[in-house]
Design a protein around this nucleic acid. Structure first.
Length: 895
RNA sequence: GGGCGAUUAGCUCAGCUGGUUAGAGCGCCACGUUGACAUCGUGGAGGUCAGUGGUUCGAGUCCACUAUCGCCCACCA
């Protein structure tokens, strides 16, 4: 079956539509690529793999514009490396999203009036799977519509059997090694979601609150000791008061007891170094079960921990009259009662940060609880070394510091969650002998030690546990698969800077611990895409830009191009529809350039070599040599930028080349020879096709759909631009660049002068040009110069020397080239004088700048020769300009 | 309390290893339907590159400090 039979209709050559319609071309191409098998890496062992593991989007909704950004960036990396001849593999996937996932389904059920506890765990999980299964293909389709060249045959979901098995193996490995343990400590508890959270799932928010001072009567004395707190309700759980051991104000009280107001129980006054003598009264209440510091103090002073809260955030029976109130309610009631009984001795406004749940926003309560933890110190050490040694590098580099700083101050990771949706902890308890053991089996029936009945720990793992295994769990680990052997470690991990800790760090230490090797060598970080006013996009604010709507209207190509080129690595960016529109306009420009090319000559006469249209040789005009040289310069520059991950700059340079050099100058100049037809036209065609085809290859990673469509229109070699080789840069032709540069300056100078003199744009004029060293070149460029500057062919003359006319003419000074435009009857001498005076001022300023530089002795002796020479040339040219303009001005004065 | 980033044209941003007169898109002004493109073309206006000091022959670019804004981290009762 030939490619043309199955290829999309838009590939059929023929007249292109007058304007670019992204929707018309983007549908259909993707499936064709897929059918061609381009998304899968070749089996060729000779090809070095290039692997990117996609950050798996949560299966909780549709994609947002942040997803579009990572798709664009990663796809650019993957397509570029594929064209470079690497066996490119981009592994797509999706995440079950733990709390977020469960919450989504809980809300959905709530709409049906169903509470998850009524239907039970099993039924709830069934519903969750239904939801996720329905969403999975949608997310996949959305990424496809953005052009993601990912290998869908390797698509992975964190809750699939493979990744699930990896989770159990890693858990057992760490458990048996003593790196996972169960312990009772203060954790962050979300009363709304009724689960423990890790430090990273708590978001601190500054809140204006109060600092309440409470007097605790010291038993057996008349004294009262005053403590300050931001959470007065926790006093119900106080089991002590602490002061600094060296605090002279309180030394006599240490060892005595206070009677806790409202509760009436006696609690001791203890000394602890942790207390800050300078803060508040220097005495602090100790609530071991609800504050991490207090818990530590209590451990040292051997104070009991008293829980005062239920898991739903209500005060428990220990709190007496306050039982049943929510913590916030309890606060008001406690304060009121304290005041009533005369224990409240002060309230002052105080700003402090309150922990909230990252997922639901509810205030988080510190709580003593028995949870599963990972001992981080040993894992962090290796992960830190990897960054310090350069095994893992960061783009931009500054994030290395963010990462190492976190690794150096790492805390234990609480991995158990009191949820239903997620990987159930593979720990089993024997009901007979009480044994606790980890198992890699999905289900265990009997205790391996005594054969008694067992039950599994009901909790699930933090969703980031499975995400942390992603670089190898997606490749089949713990099975020693062919994929694992060939594609681990991956090359670049591209993601948002906001998940360096939650995700990137964890993949690094898991990778090193489990695989013995870092999971990737480069971490590329992107920023947040904000709205055009710099605000984060959110559904509640109503400022979200839906990437799919936008790409439907302006094209996925335009969206991708815009997202990537408007941003720089690691920085936030602002997106607006206006910007995407500019991207679409660029697409239209490209479309019309190709359209012009294809209708200007017979494609059959274009010579095509093995790797594409043949590089034109032989009878080349200067402009041809110029544009090919420019293409080579851009190719080299862009390749270098790609290697350094400067994708935004690379994209801008490609577009800039196409628009302001190929379209604005080469194609315009080419019209002259295209009129001639025959061999001249054929040669121009060869050059245009060569340049366009190569530039389309450079642009392809950014705008895959339009480049494929247009590439198929042009004479080409191979099936698809997607698998065409990345262009190699040839030698530059500096001579051609210099001459054409001078020509461009001259043309601009003439156009400028025409405008200033008020010459009608349509009028063909006469010109006497003094090309200096460009004489020979300009003779060759005569037709182009005449056409571009709108000078009548037979009225364009070249002369040696400098303009000396005294008649009614306009003098043009353009770099080292000058011209005189005799415009009999059209020149307003006053206007011309004014214009020349302005030019004279500029030329003199230029002359002075060069003089100043050259008069600096140390500049001449210390700057590199070519820099000094450039100044000398500049001085000479400015001098000539000044002379000509002065001569002309004096001639005008005589007239 | 520590750390990081930003500050360049009216707006949004580039400017990679220091080197002529600092660029782009959008917006603005004037002109324009010349055989690809009005989703366009030609020309133009618009910047003491936040401030101060330093290094250097030379600084938007490197260093130090300051200011403003933003972000991250931290067991700030």
């Amino acid at each position: 079956m030939s490619a043309s039979q199955t290829s999309p209709a838009v590939f059929q050559t023929g007249e292109l539509a007058k304007s670019y319609d992204p929707a018309a071309i983007e549908h259909g191409i993707y499936d064709w690529w897929d059918r061609q098998g381009y998304f899968q890496p070749s089996d060729d062992e000779g090809q070095e793999p290039f692997v990117v593991v996609m950050p798996p989007p949560n299966l909780t909704g549709v994609l947002h514009v942040g997803h579009a950004l990572f798709v664009a960036l990663e796809d650019i990396m993957v397509r570029y490396n594929r064209m470079k001849g690497r066996a490119a593999l981009w592994i797509p996937g999706a995440d079950h999203a733990g709390i977020a996932g469960q919450l989504t389904v809980v809300r959905l059920l709530a709409e049906e009036g169903i509470n998850r506890h009524d239907i039970g765990r099993e039924k709830f999980l069934e519903r969750t799977w239904e939801y996720m299964d329905a969403l999975r293909p949608r997310v996949r389709e959305q990424m496809k519509s953005l052009g993601a060249s990912a290998d869908w045959t390797r698509f992975a979901f964190t809750m699939d059997p493979g990744p699930g098995r990896a989770v159990r193996h890693v858990f057992k490995h760490l458990y048996d090694k003593g790196l996972i343990y169960r312990g009772e400590r203060i954790i962050s508890w979300c009363p709304n979601d009724r689960t423990a959270l890790s430090d990273l799932e708590v978001v601190y928010k500054e809140q204006q609150s109060n600092l309440w001072s409470i007097a605790y009567p010291v038993e057996g004395t008349e004294e009262r000791i005053v403590v300050a707190t931001t959470r007065p309700e926790t006093m119900l759980g106080d089991t002590g008061v602490a002061v600094h051991p060296e605090d002279e104000r309180y030394q006599h009280l240490v060892g005595k007891q206070v009677r806790l107001p409202l509760m009436g129980r006696l609690i001791p006054i203890v000394a602890d170094e942790h207390v800050d003598m300078t803060f508040g009264t220097g005495a602090v209440k100790v609530t071991p079960a609800h504050d991490p510091n207090d818990f530590e103090i209590a451990k040292r002073a051997d104070l009991p921990a008293l829980m005062i809260m239920h898991e739903d955030g209500t005060l428990n029976a220990e709190t007496g009259e306050f039982a049943g109130m929510m913590m916030a309610e309890g606060r008001k009631a406690v304060v009121a009662r304290l005041e009533e009984q005369g224990f409240l001795v002060g309230i002052e406004p105080h700003e402090h940060s309150v922990g909230t749940c990252d997922r639901c926003g509810h205030v988080v309560e510190p709580l003593l609880s028995k949870q599963w933890f990972i001992k981080m110190a040993p894992l962090a050490k290796a992960a830190l070394d990897a960054a310090c040694s350069g095994d893992v590098t960061f783009v931009p580099e500054r994030y290395k510091g963010v990462y190492t700083n976190w690794m150096e101050n790492i805390h234990e990771w609480c991995i158990s969650r009191q949820l239903w949706w997620g990987h159930q902890i593979p720990i089993w308890y024997c009901d007979a002998c009480g044994d606790t053991f980890a198992s890699v089996e999905e289900s265990v029936d009997t205790c391996p030690s005594c054969g008694g009945p067992v039950h599994q720990d009901p909790d699930v793992l933090d969703t980031w546990f499975s995400s942390g295994l992603w670089p190898f769990s997606t490749l089949g680990w713990p099975e020693q698969t062919e994929d694992l052997r060939r594609f681990y470690p991956s090359d670049v991990l591209e993601t948002g800077y906001e998940i360096i800790f939650t995700w990137v760090a964890r993949m690094i230490f898991f990778g090193i611990e489990i695989m013995g090797e870092v999971p990737f060598h480069t971490v590329y970080l992107h920023g947040i895409v904000r709205d055009d006013e710099g605000a984060k996009m959110s559904k509640t604010k109503g400022n979200v830009i839906d990437p799919l709507e936008v790409s439907e209207e302006y094209g996925a190509d335009a969206l991708r191009y815009t997202l990537v080129t408007q941003a720089s690595p690691g920085n936030d960016s602002r997106l607006s529809l206006q910007k995407v529109e500019a991207g679409r306009n660029f697409g239209n420009k490209l479309w019309n350039m190709t359209r012009f090319a294809m209708r200007s000559f017979d494609p059959d006469v274009i010579e095509v070599a093995e790797d594409g249209p043949a590089r034109p040789i032989g009878n080349l005009q200067i402009v041809d040599r110029w544009i090919i040289s420019r293409l080579d310069a851009v190719t080299a520059g862009v390749s270098g930028l790609m290697e350094r991950h400067l994708y935004g700059e690379a994209g801008r340079q490609i577009a800039d080349f196409l628009w302001s050099e190929v379209a604005d100058w080469y194609i315009e100049a080419a019209k002259v020879r295209l009129r001639e037809e025959g061999e001249a036209a054929r040669m121009v065609g060869q050059v245009i096709v060569y340049v366009l085809e190569r530039a389309l290859r450079l642009l392809h990673p950014y705008m895959p759909f339009i480049t494929e469509t247009l590439w198929q229109q042009l004479p080409h070699a191979g099936e698809s631009v997607m698998i065409a080789p990345w262009p190699e840069a040839g030698e530059r032709d500096m001579t051609a660049e210099r001459h054409v540069g001078a020509m461009m300056e001259l043309v601009r100078g003439i156009r400028n002068a025409r405008t200033d003199a008020g010459v009608e744009p349509a009028k063909w004029i006469a010109a006497m040009v003094y090309p200096g060293e460009h004489l020979e070149a300009f003779e060759q460029l005569r037709g182009e110069i005449a056409f571009l500057a709108r000078v009548q062919d037979d009225q364009l003359t070249f002369a040696e020397g400098k303009p000396e006319e005294s008649g009614k003419a306009i003098t043009v000074v353009a770099g080292d080239v000058m011209a005189s435009l005799p415009l009999e009857g059209m020149v307003d001498l006053g206007v011309e004088r004014e214009r020349l005076e302005k030019e004279l001022e500029e030329a003199r300023a230029e002359q002075q700048r060069a003089e100043k530089q050259l008069s600096n002795e140390s500049f001449v002796s210390r700057a590199p020769e070519h820099v000094v020479q450039a100044q000398r040339d500049r001085l000479e040219r400015a001098g000539e300009q000044v002379a000509v303009i002065e001569q002309r001005l004096s001639a005008l004065a005589d007239a």
